[in-house]
Simulated assay, not measured.
Amino acid sequence: MGKLGEMGEVGQRRLIKSHEDLVIYQMAFEAAMQVFQLTKSFPVEERYSLTDQMRRSSRSVCANMAEAWRKRRYQAAFIAKLNDCEAESAETQVWLKFAVKCRYLEPEQAKALYSTYNQILSGLVQLIKNPKTWLL
């Protein structure tokens, strides 16, 4: 539960008022910002391909999480948007692998971000498995 953001420092339940209060959202946002910073150094010929794809998919995780949060009235819609988050997270991981193979990213940089996306995916799976906790 702590990964999702509902436990406070002393084990007290923290009130989650918006998607931005979820630790998983905060992780995804920070990861997207890291992707943005790292892709600034990619070659200009990658601007409309790898750079754009990595930025788009990483940001989409956050955007879809915000949409999922607003669709909590309907379990199927909530889960569908969380599934979109999963897909975008996995897509970002694929782009990270391409960036390493193309030698645009150091393997250690990519490994750290890849690991963050694994944590995000794990949190998303937990949300999907327990949607009733979050429904309105």
Rank of each mutant, 00 (worst) to 15 (best):
I16G: 11
E86G: 11
A31Q: 00
A28N: 00
K129A: 07
N83I: 12
S49G: 09
G11T: 03
E106R: 12
A90C: 08
Q126I: 01
A90I: 03
M33H: 10
Y104F: 15
Y114A: 09
S41F: 05
S49W: 11
E86V: 14
V125E: 09
C102K: 13
R59Q: 13
V61K: 04
D84L: 13
V35M: 10
Q93D: 02
A31V: 02
Q12V: 13
A68W: 03
K129W: 02
S122A: 14
K81S: 13
E20F: 06
L113S: 06
A32S: 15
T116K: 01
K129N: 15
V23P: 06
L38M: 14
I79E: 15
W134P: 09
R56K: 15
A87P: 00
K17Q: 14
C85A: 08
E108K: 13
L136R: 13
K97W: 04
S41T: 15
R13Y: 05
L105Q: 03
L96C: 00
L50K: 00
A31L: 06
K111R: 14
F78N: 06
K111E: 14
I120H: 02
Y104D: 09
K3P: 00
A32T: 02
M7C: 08
E46F: 10
L105Y: 04
V61F: 06
K129P: 05
C102V: 03
D21L: 04
V44M: 02
S49T: 13
A77W: 11
P131W: 03
A80D: 04
I16N: 11
I79H: 10
M27Y: 03
G2C: 08
L38I: 02
M7R: 15
F29C: 07
E30N: 12
I79Y: 07
F98D: 03
Q26N: 09
W95E: 05
E46G: 02
E108W: 06
S122V: 09
T116V: 13
E20H: 14
K71M: 13
Y48P: 04
T51L: 05
N130Q: 14
E91W: 07
M65Y: 03
S115A: 13
Y25E: 02
T92Q: 05
S89H: 04
T39V: 10
K97G: 06
V35Y: 04
K132E: 15
Q93H: 07
R13T: 14
L96N: 10
K129Y: 01
L15A: 14
Y114Q: 12
V35Q: 01
E45K: 11
G2E: 15
I24P: 09
C62V: 05
L136T: 15
Y74N: 12
V61L: 06
N130E: 03
V61R: 07
M1T: 10
K40D: 04
